[in-house]
Amino acid sequence: MTAESEYTIDELARVADTTVRSVRVYHERGLLPSPDVRGRIGYYGTDHLSRLQTISRLLGRGMKLNGIRELLEAWDRGDGLAEVLGVPDQPAAEPAEPEESHPELPEYAKQALAASDDPLEAYRVTNPRCCDLATRLVDGGIPVHTSFEMVERLRADCDRIAGRYADELFHSLAGKAFEQSERSPKDRTKFETDLAIARLIVTRAAAELIDQAFARHAEAPPLSFGPQAG
Rank of each mutant, 00 (worst) to 15 (best):
M1T: 13
A3M: 13
E4W: 06
S5D: 08
I9Q: 09
E11F: 03
A13W: 01
V15K: 14
T19H: 12
V20Y: 03
V20R: 14
S22W: 01
S22D: 08
R24A: 11
R24W: 02
R24H: 13
R24P: 09
V25W: 01
V25P: 03
V25E: 05
Y26V: 04
H27E: 02
H27G: 01
G30S: 07
L31V: 01
L31Y: 05
L32H: 04
P33F: 02
S34W: 00
P35V: 08
D36Q: 10
D36I: 09
V37K: 11
R40H: 04
I41H: 11
G42I: 05
Y44T: 03
G45L: 06
D47L: 05
D47W: 01
D47S: 11
H48Y: 04
L49N: 01
L49K: 06
S50I: 06
T54F: 02
T54D: 02
I55Q: 10
R57E: 04
L58H: 08
L59I: 09
L59S: 15
G60N: 11
M63H: 15
M63V: 02
K64E: 06
L65T: 15
N66H: 11
N66Q: 10
G67F: 07
E70G: 06
L72T: 01
E73K: 08
A74C: 06
W75N: 05
D76H: 09
G78K: 04
G86K: 09
G86L: 08
E94Y: 03
P95D: 01
P95K: 10
A96K: 13
E97G: 10
E100F: 02
S101V: 05
P106E: 02
K110T: 03
K110P: 00
Q111F: 00
A112C: 07
L113K: 09
A114D: 09
A114N: 09
A115H: 11
A115E: 08
L120M: 12
L120H: 06
Y123L: 14
V125D: 00
N127H: 12
R129V: 15
C130I: 10
C130P: 00
C131D: 04
D132G: 10
L133P: 03
A134D: 01
L137P: 04
V138P: 05
I142K: 00
V144W: 00
E149Q: 10
M150S: 02
M150R: 07
A156F: 02
C158Y: 12
C158A: 10
I161V: 15
A162V: 02
A166R: 09
E168M: 10
E168N: 13
H171S: 12
H171P: 07
L173P: 06
A174H: 06
A177W: 04
A177I: 04
F178E: 05
E179F: 03
Q180V: 01
R183D: 06
S184I: 03
K186Q: 14
D187L: 10
T189E: 15
L195R: 08
A196G: 15
I197W: 09
A198Q: 11
R199T: 15
R199K: 15
R199G: 14
I201S: 14
V202L: 15
V202C: 12
V202K: 08
T203M: 12
A205E: 00
D211G: 11
D211Y: 13
F214H: 08
E219G: 14
A220Q: 14
P222R: 14
P222Y: 02
L223R: 15
S224F: 14
F225K: 15
G226S: 07
P227F: 07
